[in-house]
Design a protein around this nucleic acid. Structure first.
Lengths: 212, 212
DNA sequence: AACGTAACTTACCGGTGAGTAGGCTACCTG
DNA sequence: CAGGTAGCCTACTCACCGGTAAGTTACGTT
């Protein structure tokens, strides 16, 4: 136990976000109690309410922070390059995030509280898919495809990467990050039909942080 | 309100499974109470416990039934045909299930109870991915690929179809089933690179029920 | 009609967890 | 040192929910 010490408001707030993220990640929203969060932060319950108002407030703040970091990283990744390079870069950023921020990743892939039912799409990943969908929509129109089906592809790709990330994390990352990125990229880009026996050569840049 | 009427054991059990499925689907596991299930079935709490022992028992029974139906349908679908045909057939069965059994689909894609932590893999979809992975493993070895990466592809494909299904259902199915199947199949088979402008001709059979 | 039993009920216990009222304490400032 | 205030705590309330004990009612069978 660290020495019980008074923190400033912002410091305590940041610590609570961190602790809450860990707990929501491992237990899920409903199964995590504010009491637990407070205890793990070495503080009493009302402090949490002072900072975040309610349980959902804490959850929302955590999700928003994670979302921003991830989306920011992905936006940077797809800013330039060929279509394929941008695709690979996006996969790389996503899986890097899954690796380096496992708790944040777990929160984003888990269920949200039932009450926050924003416009039918409840899960957070849907939000990400929608952002990708917006990008696709533009590209599709430009390339002469029917833009109405853009969300299908956006959701397919996001779901693909997400599920791989979930499996990879749950399994203790049995395969190096770069290999996973290459295989997923190969599948997304070339499809099952033209899978290369060893998908390696692709001018892949190996750096890329997800959080700002 | 229907006339309050005594049912036989099996009848009541079936009704409780149905009611429970609906509630778990819309609220999630933790946020659904047995009292709610009992009330919606027009019956008192102990009846539920008589049939299923505990809350998790009811949940497990529901999940198992849904899983069996879905996996059965998919097994049938991939029993014969070329690789591509089997792939398309599997996608068709999966999305047909999402369409015709929305509640069951929602239960399967939602979070599971935290306590049933079977060896790290908690979510049900992971289970499905594993079954697909087993199939892939064999095919990969046969085709001279590294079987260790088979799960990557299995999870990628399952995640792809799942997320499309979630989006499609949440959005009120804005696109006909056959179109979604064709686009997803095209992406999975040919990749982003060789997307056909109108992925239609493919000898797709349009029937296929998920449940037995 | 008497009986057995399957279906069902009321009424409770114990525990947990969200959220709050009101007070205490360390520290900075004049 | 006086006083304000930011950070913090104890001690509740209230509601809900999982699970159970014990008793009641409908109904087919002999």
């Amino acid at each position: 136990m660290a020495k019980k010490q008074r923190l400033t408001g912002p410091q305590r707030r940041a610590q609570l976000l961190e602790v809450g993220r860990e707990l929501f990640a491992s237990r899920g929203y409903e199964a995590t109690s504010i009491e637990e969060v407070a205890a793990k932060a070495g503080v009493s319950k009302p402090i949490v309410y002072e900072h975040f108002g309610a349980k959902e407030g804490l959850y929302a703040a955590i999700v928003e922070r994670e979302m921003d970091g991830l989306v920011q990283g992905m936006s940077d990744a797809i800013a330039q390059g060929s279509a394929r390079e941008r695709f690979e870069a996006a996969v790389l950023v996503f899986l890097t995030y899954a690796k380096e921020e496992p708790a944040g990743f777990a929160v984003l892939t888990r269920d949200s509280p039932t009450s926050s039912a924003r416009r039918g799409l409840t899960r957070v990943i849907d939000d990400l898919a929608q952002r990708v969908g917006d990008i696709f929509q533009a590209e599709f129109s430009r390339a002469g495809f029917n833009p109405k089906v853009a969300p299908v592809y956006a959701n397919a790709l996001v779901g693909m990467v997400t599920q791989v990330g979930v499996w990879w994390a749950a399994e203790g990352r049995p395969i190096p990050l770069e290999h996973v990125v290459r295989h997923v990229s190969a599948l997304g880009w070339m499809g099952l039909r033209h899978l290369p026996r060893d998908p390696s050569a692709s001018g892949l840049r190996t750096k890329g942080k997800a959080k700002g």
